[in-house]
Amino acid sequence: MASDGVVVEIGKVTGSVGTTVEIPVYFRGVPSKGIANCDFVFRYDPNVLEIIGIDPGDIIVDPNPTKSFDTAIYPDRKIIVFLFAEDSGTGAYAITKDGVFAKIRATVKSSAPGYITFDEVGGFADNDLVEQKVSFIDGGVNVGNATPTKGATPTNTATPTK
């Protein structure tokens, strides 16, 4: 695992066909100046998982989280898009600690492993708008004895992609 920078880890949970599971997305290594904004994309298989919603985690402190935390689910493109932009203008609602960034709610549709993997990152910046190093650890849903650990090695991303 990367020793510096922010680590975004997609949790690994267990479920069975027809059940709804909650998959946490963790941030670790949050910089001392916090995270003022970030955007990134995960990939998944809508034939295996139906993403039914995404909720902000406990490290989102904006009293009205829909102003700073936004997501979009595109089953036709097989992606989930995340956007966080601190909304106070003063840094008061920045992410300042490690913990759960988001909770992905999904219904298991198939007995195949439900991988959720890193696809791309736009950027991560602290309260001074300084770009942060970030790496990703894939996860998803274990169905029966299947284990979604494909790509469990962190993917280092030093520069934003478009």
Rank of each mutant, 00 (worst) to 15 (best):
P46K: 11
K97C: 05
S88M: 07
T71R: 05
Y115R: 09
G18A: 10
G140H: 14
G91F: 05
K78L: 03
D39T: 00
P65A: 11
T71C: 04
V13Y: 08
S111R: 10
T107L: 07
P24Y: 03
A125Q: 00
K33S: 03
A152I: 10
A36W: 00
Y115S: 07
S32G: 10
G122H: 00
A146F: 05
I23E: 14
T159Q: 14
D87Q: 15
V121A: 15
V48G: 04
V30W: 02
T14H: 10
T19F: 06
T19I: 06
P46H: 09
G140Y: 09
T155V: 12
T157E: 13
D62I: 15
T149I: 07
L83D: 02
D126V: 01
P56H: 08
K133S: 07
G57Y: 14
I79Y: 13
V61M: 03
V6A: 04
I116G: 03
T155N: 09
S3P: 09
V48P: 07
T71I: 05
A146T: 09
E22Y: 06
D62K: 14
T159Y: 14
E9Y: 09
P154E: 12
S110M: 11
F118W: 14
T14S: 08
Y93F: 08
K78I: 01
T107R: 13
V17W: 03
F40K: 02
T157N: 13
D76G: 01
V30G: 05
E131D: 08
D87L: 15
D98R: 14
F40R: 00
A106Q: 05
P65I: 06
S111T: 12
P154V: 12
G144K: 12
V100R: 11
P24F: 10
V7Q: 05
I10T: 07
Y74F: 02
T19W: 03
F27V: 05
P56S: 11
A102T: 10
A106E: 02
L49A: 13
I54T: 07
F82I: 02
D87R: 15
V81C: 01
I79F: 15
G89C: 03
G139R: 08
T117Y: 08
R43F: 05
I95Y: 03
N47T: 05
K109T: 10
F118E: 06
A102C: 13
E22T: 08
L129H: 02
V7M: 15
I35F: 03
V25R: 00
S16E: 15
S135V: 11
P56E: 05
V6Y: 01
N37T: 00
P65Q: 09
T20R: 05
D138N: 10
S68E: 03
A158D: 08
V48F: 04
T20P: 12
K109C: 08
S68Q: 09
P113V: 07
I54N: 05
S111I: 06
R28E: 03
V21A: 06
D128S: 08
N127H: 01
D128V: 05
K150L: 13
I137C: 06
A112W: 02
N47Q: 04
V61D: 04
R77A: 06
F40L: 02
V143T: 11
T66F: 11
K103H: 10
T14A: 11
I60F: 14
A158S: 12
I35Q: 05
G11P: 07
F84D: 03
P113R: 14
S111G: 13
D98E: 10
V134E: 02
I60P: 11
N145G: 07
K109M: 07
D39N: 00
V134M: 02
V41P: 00
F69V: 04
E86G: 01
D126M: 01
G140M: 15
G29H: 07
D126A: 02
T66H: 14
P160E: 14
I23T: 06
N142K: 08
E50I: 03
G29K: 05
T14L: 09
T159H: 13
I60C: 05
F84L: 07
I116H: 06
I137N: 12
G15A: 08
D126S: 04
I116T: 10
E50C: 04
T147C: 13
A125P: 00
P160Q: 11
I60N: 10
T147G: 10
L83K: 00
V41F: 01
P63W: 12
G140A: 12
V7C: 09
K67N: 13
G144R: 12
S135G: 07
S68Y: 14
G53T: 10
N142V: 08
Y74A: 00
F82C: 02
V121M: 06
G144N: 13
N142Y: 12
S135I: 06
T159I: 13
D55T: 10
K103E: 06
V108C: 12
V13T: 06
D70E: 03
K103F: 11
D62E: 11
Q132N: 04
E120I: 02
S68F: 05
G140E: 06
S3L: 05
I79H: 01
K103V: 08
G144D: 08
V41C: 02
I95M: 13
F118Q: 10
F40Q: 03
F82L: 03
K133N: 08
S88D: 03
V21H: 05
T107A: 09
A102I: 09
I79V: 05
G29I: 14
I51E: 02
K150A: 11
Y26R: 11
F84K: 01
F84H: 02
V13G: 13
V134P: 12
D138T: 09
D39M: 00
P46N: 08
D58C: 04
T107Y: 10
T107F: 06
V134Q: 03
T19N: 14
R105Q: 10
S16Y: 06
V17E: 14
P46M: 08
F101T: 08
G15T: 07
F84T: 02
D138P: 11
T96I: 10
M1T: 10
T19C: 12
T149A: 11
V30Y: 04
S68W: 08
G34F: 04
I52F: 07
N37Y: 01
I54Y: 02
V100M: 13
G29R: 11
S16T: 07
P75G: 05
F124M: 03
G5E: 07
V21W: 04
T157K: 12
G151I: 07
D4G: 04
V21R: 09
V134H: 02
D62M: 15
T14P: 09
V108H: 11
T66S: 07
T66R: 13
Y26H: 08
F101G: 04
V13E: 06
K97D: 14
P148L: 04
D58H: 13
L129Y: 15
A102Q: 03
S111N: 13
V134S: 08
Y115G: 11
Q132A: 10
K12E: 06
P75F: 03
K150V: 09
C38E: 00
S110A: 14
V100L: 05
V8N: 15
A158M: 09
I23D: 02
V141H: 13
P148I: 03
G57E: 12
S110E: 08
D45Y: 05
D76I: 01
V30L: 13
F136I: 04
S135E: 04
S68M: 13
F84V: 01
I60V: 09
L83Q: 00
S68N: 15
V25Q: 03
D70A: 15
E86Q: 01
A158H: 12
P75H: 03
G151W: 11
A152K: 07
D98M: 07
I51Q: 09
D45H: 07
K109Y: 08
S135K: 07
P75D: 02
I54F: 02
P24K: 03
V134I: 14
G139S: 12
S88E: 02
S68P: 15
G122W: 00
D45Q: 04
K133A: 05
I35V: 04
I59A: 13
T90S: 06
Y93P: 01
F136C: 03
G11H: 08
L83P: 01
I73E: 12
N156S: 13
G151R: 09
D62N: 13
A36H: 00
G139P: 02
V130F: 09
I35K: 01
Y93A: 14
S16Q: 07
E9H: 07
G29A: 15
V108Q: 14
G99N: 14
A158F: 09
A72F: 00
T14D: 13
G29S: 08
I104M: 15
F101L: 06
I95C: 13
D76S: 04
V13M: 03
S88C: 06
G122C: 01
P24A: 04
A102G: 09
T20I: 14
D4F: 14
V141C: 10
K78Q: 02
